[in-house]
Design a protein around this nucleic acid. Sequence first.
DNA 1: ACATAATCGAGACGGTACGTCTGGTCTTTAC
DNA 2: GTAAAGACCAGACGTACCGTCTCGATTATGT
Lengths: 194, 194, 194, 194
Amino acid sequence: MTGDRQPGRPRSEAVRQAILAAAADELTEKGYAALTVEGIAARAGAGKQTIYRWWPSKADVVLDALLEAAASRISIPDNGTLRADLTAFLAATFRQRSQRPILVGLMAEALLDPVFAQQFRDRFLFGRRAALRGILDRAAQRGEISADVRIELLIDVVYGVLWYRLLLDHAPLSEAAGRELAALVVRAAGQQVS
Amino acid sequence: MTGDRQPGRPRSEAVRQAILAAAADELTEKGYAALTVEGIAARAGAGKQTIYRWWPSKADVVLDALLEAAASRISIPDNGTLRADLTAFLAATFRQRSQRPILVGLMAEALLDPVFAQQFRDRFLFGRRAALRGILDRAAQRGEISADVRIELLIDVVYGVLWYRLLLDHAPLSEAAGRELAALVVRAAGQQVS
Amino acid sequence: MTGDRQPGRPRSEAVRQAILAAAADELTEKGYAALTVEGIAARAGAGKQTIYRWWPSKADVVLDALLEAAASRISIPDNGTLRADLTAFLAATFRQRSQRPILVGLMAEALLDPVFAQQFRDRFLFGRRAALRGILDRAAQRGEISADVRIELLIDVVYGVLWYRLLLDHAPLSEAAGRELAALVVRAAGQQVS
Amino acid sequence: MTGDRQPGRPRSEAVRQAILAAAADELTEKGYAALTVEGIAARAGAGKQTIYRWWPSKADVVLDALLEAAASRISIPDNGTLRADLTAFLAATFRQRSQRPILVGLMAEALLDPVFAQQFRDRFLFGRRAALRGILDRAAQRGEISADVRIELLIDVVYGVLWYRLLLDHAPLSEAAGRELAALVVRAAGQQVS
DNA sequence: ACATAATCGAGACGGTACGTCTGGTCTTTAC
DNA sequence: GTAAAGACCAGACGTACCGTCTCGATTATGT
């Protein structure tokens, strides 16, 4: 009746965390582009093989590190109006500016590697979309969103602008920018005049 | 009007084009991630040094190849209404789907290399923004855009959605999608009800 | 008697020998000047890194290959007279004419690279001198060498003539030449008339 | 009757000397191994083509530079005895120790390149041999050299020891060493006891 | 004067090998 | 079986020179 265990030495949780921590440290120190499996292993005091055994690529390690750190999730606000909710959501999102290099690095990786791209979508991006979808769904129930506007498109608009600015870095991701974007989405979602 | 030439053998235009063509070929055959300077040189029948002499990185070669090919620019439509212009513009943009791997590769590079990022912005992205801005400016003169909506934000919305889908590949970039996006932008740009 | 081994995969003896063999083959096929680390690695089916890990330069690889092959050492003859010993020694030395390109190549390298020069002296040339010194020491004990002739100078004479001809290639290194040189050394070593 | 000149711009003597001087300078500064045609051309303010037009390799440039400098030849002494002449000759030779790196470099080149080797022999080494042969021939006429000793072998002994030490650098090339070598050659050349 | 012809500086060009770096895999011993 | 260590094959990196080539400019000879 004992919980069936497979034979052999069990995976070390300590090692796993050491690797994730090492990845995070290397990242903040040198940036994503200079990240190497070799470097992570060396800093973690781990063998390269140990990393390859559990993660298919360095991007997956970083993704795990990101998800590990993202325990402090963005809370989904509920202020009664779409504009207020959106503004709060964007402000909370923009506040995590320290994650920018990580997000940008992972996106670069996803662009170059379709296999990782799916991981990134499924384990990270879709989660964020779901949070936003919650806000918009509630707004729709309140009648704040016109029937002929697909909510998925609104999500694309919000995250599209967000990522586009994250990548291009041509415009600020300030709280004011959040307010402006929220206003635009509200306007786009609302009823047409005639 | 002085005809002063610098001394030494002049740069060979034939070689330049051979390299750009080779880069384009390698790209379509193997994809951006598998692109190497070595491979481009070999296919172009050129020395590696010749590439490094004129381009700081493989990304710059690809960018030049892209710009060279983009002689057949997207024409800026003028149909009298914002919705029609936008729909035509997006349709024309989406039609160049063969460029997707190139664009995605270059964006990945820009994310990893800030120096190249500036090149990419200045020589490519800003050019595309300018085209779109032309359409929106005309609409503004016609009074189709509310005074409290910044045109730059509308550009971010259009290209944000476009790039977000290009990168994520979670939604189609079809003509129907173009129509839907155009409608949304028109709605967001238009006069508020009350 | 402790069986302590250092951790990690041990160096592969098979690979070491494959590299030395490949070096020897490339050498006889193309000559020392055309020898490249790249070529050796390719022929040995080894990575370049593996060569650089264990040898500082291609010359050191060749030197090792030479020493490996020189297991069949020149035996030190003992025929009772200096003239007979010297003649036999030189004949044995000259017989290894196939080594000429190797020796010449290594000497060229030693001339251009002081670091390798020391290796070459210590691991090869001094060994040969020692062999000859054995012969001359025995002759000295027999009283065949005048007290006012330094044995080291005699060694320089023998190997000086040998190398000078090896390098210049202006006179044969035949058995007859060996006899003539032996005779001259005996004469130089012998007692003065008055 | 004018010395027929071919048409076209004549070779510039100034450039020729600038190149030889540049080669000599680079040599003393960086050593033979680090010498490059590119470096010589740059320092001389000359084009690479100009060098390749007149010299087949960098070694030939250096050889010309050496011969140019060797206008101050070693005078052939005539003191009446072989021992005195040889001692003086060797002392004069050893005194030019500054030439060591050049000689060693050229010898290395000759070892690696048979075509240059012939140049080096014919234009330099054989000249030196001839000087020594003059001394030995005179000694032979005076009866100082036994009939059964070939003069060419004696030359090999002298230059053999000289080059061997030049290359190996294991023993000094001092005036004392010259006296010792001269004594040995005299002894070897002289009449046998019995 | 003006063509002809060879030289010169400059530097681009196709190549080749360099020595380094990283990626993934494999082979040890220790636990 | 997992882990650290580190050797191994593979192959691209960016650099350095090679020897050749194409420019414009220069400097002579032969009309």
